[in-house]
């Protein structure tokens, strides 16, 4: 899936958008114009420009490239081509991404071990069942332990706040648990735009990391007073409508960049639908999901 297909009002616009989506410089991309916009009456543009673009595969294809970059410090791959722009370009971009990032992406590039254990959500030809199985058994123990820690942390926190709330946990699937705080007058724990909730989630994650060092954190979700649930519902509805469009038109569509949690909602929603699947592109914090015809 290394090619992305983008439409725009003009070829230039489409190419621009494609670069955005690939997250690379002009020099590192390869284009194919599939369709030029047709000139209509009175010079009006009818139809759209359609281009296909991919990261120039002098070095690796995008997914392989990501692994290579990680090994690059070892210096085994980088030198095969001295004018090798692609390996150098993503580096700074990744660092910048990490600085801006507000969610749980610290493990994206920094620590090889946790990146390796992050579940790959590639639809398509892999062997999902096999991957799934090994993933589940590893994660089960972690997930339970993590959930218990978050649960305990929140009970204490709610108590310190002196709010009247109960904390409950639910295992949503093999890799996700949710800890919910419910009660009255919990706006204080959500905050404007969910700021306080996000901060509490961040602290929960930190506590998990501290208690069980070296494990991949982040699969325990946190919700207060149904705030995330409402947002999730809206995102699911939106995703379904885009998926319908993609299925009907046969043209893939990239969604705007989202944080990992929101991307997961999109992946999960699309996974349940026939005729469409998802891929992720770009680097944090501009990583985004593309819904593609299956």
């Amino acid at each position: 899936m290394e090619w992305v297909e983008i439409t725009g009002r003009t070829v230039e616009e489409a190419m621009e958008a494609a670069l955005d989506q690939l997250g690379v410089d002009n020099d590192d991309a390869e284009f194919e114009v599939l369709e030029e916009p047709k000139q209509g009456l009175f010079g009006r543009v009818r139809g759209q420009a359609r281009v296909r673009a991919r990261i120039r595969p002098t070095v690796p294809r995008p997914k392989v490239e990501r692994r290579d970059r990680r090994r690059r410090n070892g210096g085994n791959k980088a030198n095969q081509n001295p004018t090798d722009a692609p390996t150098s370009v993503p580096g700074p971009a990744v660092e910048a991404a990490a600085v801006n990032d507000t969610t749980d992406t610290t493990d994206t590039e920094g620590t090889p071990s946790s990146t390796g254990s992050r579940p790959r959500r590639r639809s398509g030809k892999g062997k999902p069942s096999e991957q799934g199985d090994s993933k589940v058994s590893d994660n089960d123990v972690d997930l339970e332990a993590h959930t218990a820690i978050v649960n305990e942390f929140l009970i204490g926190l709610v108590d310190a706040f002196g709010v009247d709330a109960r904390v409950e946990t639910e295992l949503l699937d093999d890799e996700t648990a949710e800890v919910r705080v419910d009660g009255t007058d919990l706006g204080v724990l959500v905050g404007p735009k969910g700021n306080t909730l996000n901060a509490i989630q961040e602290l929960s994650r930190t506590v998990v990391h501290r208690r069980v060092p070296g494990t991949a954190a982040g699969r325990v979700r946190l919700d207060v007073a149904g705030y995330r649930q409402r947002r999730r519902d809206a995102l699911e509805r939106f995703t379904r409508s885009v998926a319908d469009e993609v299925r009907a038109s046969g043209v893939q569509k990239a969604l705007e960049p989202m944080n990992p949690a929101d991307r997961k909602v999109v992946h999960d929603t699309v996974n349940e639908l026939d005729g469409v699947s998802t891929i992720s592109e770009g680097e944090e914090p501009r990583r985004r999901v593309v819904i593609v015809p299956a």
Partner: peptide
Amino acid sequence: RVAQSIRTVVRAAAAR
């Protein structure tokens, strides 16, 4: 990041 999260949560508490 942790310090920032702590500040956010503590200020929410201070509002109470």
